[in-house]
Simulated assay, not measured.
Amino acid sequence: MSHTLSTSVSSELEIRKSRFIAHAIPVADRDAAMAELRRLREENPTATHVCWALLAGGQSGMSDDGEPSGTAGRPILEVLRHHDLDGVLAAVVRYYGGVKLGAGGLVRAYTDAIARVLQDAPRVERIAQALLTVEIGYADEARVRRWIEQEGYALADSGYQMAVRLTISMPVTAVDAARDALRDMTQGRAVFAEEI
């Protein structure tokens, strides 16, 4: 069972006059991670490097952002994997302090910075999400939308043609019960994507 973070955490490490500010941020996907990276760059316009790694639902990525190849992004990614985290962007903002650390020193610095921020980070189980697409009549739409809200699900997409087509994001474990509930509340008129 993989975990994600319930909230963003950050901590700072100073190594030979360089400041390493580590951030671990829960994100839904790569797009959300890129938006967080833009924000970090805007908040730290004078930083020398913003190195990062991402694990989010099968999407991974990393960047050394100008540090020698393999000294920042890869070590950060390894720490994320070691902690069995998913849906997390780990980024380290570095302010260079004038003392070169060498490749080994950099790997250690980036590893330590991220390991430290994750040490006490609040974790939650990452629940796999599924998309359920249902076609219903216009008369049933308000009732179904209320149900989606009450259950705490997210409406991922909607379309209107002869019928209303709603795509609902929910935990994988809830799909079967959701199908039954939708059939019940529409007196069997709900049609699911695999049946359309």
Rank of each mutant, 00 (worst) to 15 (best):
M62E: 11
A154D: 14
L132F: 06
G58I: 03
Y153A: 10
D140W: 01
P26R: 05
A177C: 09
L55N: 07
A163T: 14
E14S: 15
L101Q: 04
A22P: 03
T111M: 02
T111P: 03
V124G: 12
E194T: 15
A22S: 12
A115Y: 02
A22F: 06
G102Q: 08
M1D: 15
E67N: 08
V79R: 01
M185Q: 04
R19N: 07
A56I: 04
L80N: 01
P171L: 06
Y95T: 10
A91M: 04
R74M: 11
Y138F: 15
M162C: 13
G159S: 14
S10K: 11
G159I: 12
A121K: 01
A47L: 06
A91I: 05
G61A: 07
V164W: 02
A56E: 01
M185K: 01
L131Y: 14
Y138A: 12
E195Y: 07
V9L: 02
E36D: 09
T186K: 01
W52A: 08
P75N: 04
P171N: 04
A181R: 13
L89Q: 00
A115R: 05
A47P: 02
A142F: 08
D84C: 14
A103L: 05
L89T: 01
S11M: 10
L54I: 03
T48C: 08
D184F: 15
F192S: 04
L37R: 02
T111W: 00
R38Y: 06
K17F: 09
E135P: 05
A177K: 11
D31C: 07
F20Y: 03
F20A: 03
F20T: 00
G152C: 06
Y96V: 08
R30T: 09
A130Q: 07
A109N: 02
T133E: 12
R19D: 07
G159M: 13
Q129R: 12
L37D: 02
L77V: 05
A28M: 11
Q129E: 14
R41P: 03
A174Q: 11
V172H: 15
G98R: 09
Y96G: 08
